[in-house]
Design a protein around this nucleic acid. Sequence first.
DNA 1: CTTAAGTGATACACACCTGTCACAGTTAGC
DNA 2: GCTAACTGTGACAGGTGTGTATCACTTAAG
Lengths: 198, 198
Amino acid sequence: MDRDTGRRLRADAEHNTARILAAAEEVLAADPAASLERIGEAAGLTRATVHRRFASRRALLEALTEQLNQRYLTALDQSRADGAPPLVVFRRLTEIVFELKAGHRFAMELMSDEAGCHGGLTPEVADGLEEVFALLREAGEITATGADWCRQVYLALLQEADQLPEDAADLVEAGRSKAELVVRAVVGALGGQGSRST
Amino acid sequence: MDRDTGRRLRADAEHNTARILAAAEEVLAADPAASLERIGEAAGLTRATVHRRFASRRALLEALTEQLNQRYLTALDQSRADGAPPLVVFRRLTEIVFELKAGHRFAMELMSDEAGCHGGLTPEVADGLEEVFALLREAGEITATGADWCRQVYLALLQEADQLPEDAADLVEAGRSKAELVVRAVVGALGGQGSRST
DNA sequence: CTTAAGTGATACACACCTGTCACAGTTAGC
DNA sequence: GCTAACTGTGACAGGTGTGTATCACTTAAG
């Protein structure tokens, strides 16, 4: 994750790398083409320092996606900890993802041309998501079979809900959280596959 | 739409502006930060010519969004021509949008900070979309009330379906078109608002 | 306290994109 | 065919982001 992988970092330095990653997360979410200058500024540091921690812009993005993938992995583990019903697992997962406010896609799409076209997600994360969808499928909550379609729909609706203002009609009306809104929308989107015949 | 608004253009020149817009549509869909050089190259023209037709990059993007909004408007008119059932109207609209393969969002999001935060869409287009959703709502097909949420979900799923490979499981399995997939997914996503209680 | 590590400030080279211009060659339109 | 319009080529200036390096200063860690 850091430029000098061999030696150990001083405490403040390691703290700053975290600040840079956090700042990059926030700034790049608003503007994916933001300069390292602006990222450093948001982190309260200089551009030079950003370059000391991350050799190149590319390296920073890689570290960022790695961090996000790690968060997704732990979120998957936490939500599947006990043998809860699939829909509960799915709701938990969504809540956790919203809590870590990852600005979800931004960086992933930046690196999407990198790895195996899973939308920037590590294969492990993609597989973990697919397992959750498989649970929902077995429980009869959804009927869509394509792993790619399920994943993309989920990520897309996560992003849209995230950008939704807090006072949106669909939220205040029923007093629901964004996570619940996303859960219902995703289940609905992936669930009505064979019901009607229009 | 063109640099010199006062005089009429020669036939080939006008033809080239269309090529530039088409090329921009395609190239910017793949890379929103693509240079005018690459856009011109994709159009079989030089960067200088691009600048002759469009005074600045900004002007090109504005013309592009204007063109897309115009297409959306005509698509809305066509789909609502006769008094067809709401679900049929919605399906028609989606099919038309897919046919003109607009690479839907790309440019809209680029200009989204411009106008009134409707995701790059003209107020007229946003209103037209909302009318379609109102029809679906009255017919009991959907229950979501937020215009923003409905629109964003629709646009997001349009984009995801567009990027879906032709041989995706959810498509070949039932022999359905992408348009039908989107229609069902959107109706499902916006329709299950008050049914269950997790 | 002392040392090594980290940072800020500054400067530099490099590359890319934008916008404009001038000039020569080509093409549409009458 | 003639003329005006259009394009290609090449060049230029200005701006911005990247990556590197140096020096003085501050701070964590032993």
